[in-house]
Computed example of a mutant assay.
Amino acid sequence: MPNPNPAVDKAAIRAAARNVGDGSVTEGYQADREAVIALLNDALATELVCVLRYKRHHYTVTGLQNGPIKAEFLAHAREEQAHADLLAERIVQLNGLPDFNPANLVARSHAEYDEAITVQAMIMANLIAERIAIEAYRQMIQFIGDTDPTTRHMLVGIMAMEEEHADEMRDLLA
């Protein structure tokens, strides 16, 4: 019986799927896997540095009037941690190893760690870091193109959250 869907070669797909050692990475994966893993590890470092920066700002911001800003910093720290978790999971799905080595985080991070002491300086540092993350994700998305739709989709979602964070930091500066 002929295949009713000639665009999909079921026999070839089934045969290739039996190579289970590569997990979710199939023969059809078109991206440079090692390059994607390296990009994702740099993004992971960025997100972890952002978690630390937001946490520091959350714990060190003072003043009764700054309660909402303190809460915003904590919310962003949690969202950045969720981004880090997504990145680490994707690295593993691509048969890579997420690099959580603290000694390497700042050097690999796109954004910088910040020790600002005034509220305005904290907000400005976070806004700059968010803008750096947005541009870094945009470049990663462009590099990946259509070669890895799963990673691309994940990065687009993270970038959208970073854009929200940047808007929120800009609003706090007003």
Rank of each mutant, 00 (worst) to 15 (best):
V20S: 15
G21F: 02
G21Y: 05
G21V: 08
G21C: 07
D22N: 13
D22Y: 05
G23F: 06
S24L: 15
T26Y: 01
G28R: 02
Y29E: 15
Q30P: 10
A31H: 01
D32T: 00
R33Q: 07
E34L: 07
A35D: 06
A35E: 05
A35N: 11
I37K: 12
A38R: 01
L39R: 04
N41G: 07
N41V: 01
N41Q: 07
D42V: 04
A43D: 09
A43Y: 00
A43P: 11
A45K: 01
A45C: 09
T46G: 13
E47M: 11
L48M: 02
L48V: 02
C50P: 08
V51T: 02
L52W: 05
Y54W: 00
K55W: 12
R56V: 07
R56L: 10
H57V: 02
H58V: 00
Y59P: 04
V61Q: 03
V61E: 04
T62P: 08
T62R: 13
G63A: 14
Q65V: 08
K70N: 02
A71C: 11
A71P: 09
E72Y: 10
E72L: 08
L74C: 07
L74M: 09
A75M: 03
A75S: 14
A77W: 01
A77Q: 05
E79S: 10
Q81D: 11
Q81E: 06
A82L: 09
H83L: 06
A84Q: 03
A84Y: 00
L86M: 07
L86W: 09
L86V: 08
L87C: 07
R90D: 00
I91K: 09
V92R: 04
Q93T: 03
Q93E: 11
L94K: 08
L94C: 08
L94H: 03
L94A: 10
L94Q: 10
N95Q: 04
N95P: 05
G96E: 01
G96T: 01
G96H: 03
L97C: 13
P98T: 05
D99Y: 03
D99C: 15
D99Q: 12
N101P: 14
N101F: 08
N101E: 11
P102K: 05
P102T: 00
A103N: 04
A103E: 08
N104E: 09
N104K: 14
L105G: 11
V106I: 12
A107K: 12
A107G: 11
R108P: 15
S109Q: 10
S109H: 11
S109W: 01
H110M: 14
H110S: 12
Y113W: 14
D114M: 11
D114G: 15
T118N: 14
T118G: 12
Q120R: 13
Q120V: 15
Q120N: 15
A121G: 15
M122Q: 07
I123C: 09
M124I: 08
M124F: 10
M124C: 13
N126V: 01
N126Q: 06
L127N: 12
L127R: 07
I128E: 14
A129S: 09
A129R: 06
A129N: 12
A129L: 05
I132R: 13
A133I: 00
A133D: 04
A133P: 03
A133V: 01
A133S: 10
I134K: 03
E135H: 03
A136E: 06
Y137G: 06
Y137E: 07
Y137A: 06
R138V: 02
R138D: 02
Q139Y: 00
Q139I: 03
I141Q: 10
Q142Y: 01
Q142R: 09
F143K: 15
G145T: 02
D146W: 00
